[in-house]
Each structure stands twice: as C-alpha cells, then as structure tokens.
Amino acid sequence: MVVRREKKSRKLRGSRTMGWGIRGQHRDRGAQGSRQIGMHKEKWSWLVKYGKGWYGKHGFRNPTTKLVSTISLRRLNELLINGSIKLEEKDGKKVLDLNQLGYEKLLGGGNLSIAVVIKVKKASAKAVEKVKQIGGEVILSPTE
C-alpha cells in the first residue's frame, strides 16, 4: 500500500465532507461484498422482495434425464372434442400427426371416442391397443 505523505484532512480543509460524499461521510460499511453476502442482514429487504427460495435445499437436476413431451388419450380426446386440434382427411380416414403438434409419445390413460389414424414417434402398448379397439391405428414414425 502506498503511504500517504500528507494527511488527507490537511488537503481538504474547508470542504465540509472531506471527500467522503454528502450522505455517509465514511460512516457505513459499504456494499459488503457481492449479491450473496449479507442477505440475512443488510440486504434483507431485497431478499424479501425478490429472493423467493433463496435459503434452503432445492434438490438437483439429473443431467442424464431426458424429458419427453407426452399426451394421454384422455387429453387428446378433450382437445379433439373442443376443436383445439383439427383432423386431416386422407383416403376417407381421419389422420392426426402428433409429431407436428410437438408431442413425442402417446400414453394409454383414458379413452378416445373417435377412430383416428395417429402418427407419433412412440406409443405405449396400452395406447396402441385402445386405439385399435375403436377402429383407429397408430403409426410409429422413426425417431431421428
């Protein structure tokens, strides 16, 4: 550290605040570190307002887990009845491409009320069986 040859107070006589600003005058402790320091003390008001879930354990995400977007027959039936999903007509059959809608797998929970040809990457055995029972078909497209 450099040694101050002359005292600062000798240089700044007549300046009232002596170079320490108009509010604190060298009384407080400053910012006290980065965002994570002092959260239970001087930065508590910030934490209450913005830092929900700051303290405590929060688990971890397994990096090997692959998330697959799925849809059940129950949900698919609701969307078909509501008219949220439009069916295409090909060769007198109603065709539905779940790959275009962003779904990767068809699950067998619930039932379908309409006989539909469904194109999807994956489907459970139960889902395939239920669709065949009502006169539909599941076409499994190859995965990229």
Rank of each mutant, 00 (worst) to 15 (best):
K8D: 00
K41M: 05
E78M: 12
L101E: 09
E88K: 14
A31L: 06
M18N: 09
M1F: 12
G30C: 01
V117S: 09
S141G: 00
R74K: 15
R29T: 09
I114V: 10
Q25I: 06
S72R: 06
A31T: 06
W54R: 07
H40R: 09
L98T: 10
G110Q: 11
G102W: 05
I134V: 13
I71K: 04
T17A: 05
G110V: 15
L76Q: 08
N111S: 13
G108K: 08
L101I: 10
L107R: 01
N111F: 15
G108C: 04
L76I: 12
M39D: 01
S45A: 08
I37V: 14
K43E: 04
Y55H: 10
W46S: 11
V131K: 10
H40S: 12
M1N: 07
N77A: 14
N62W: 08
I81M: 05
H26G: 07
A123V: 06
G38K: 03
I37N: 05
G92T: 11
V116T: 15
L73M: 11
M1Y: 09
L106R: 02
K41L: 09
V131R: 09
A123W: 06
N111L: 10
S84M: 03
R29E: 03
G102V: 05
E88S: 14
R29F: 09
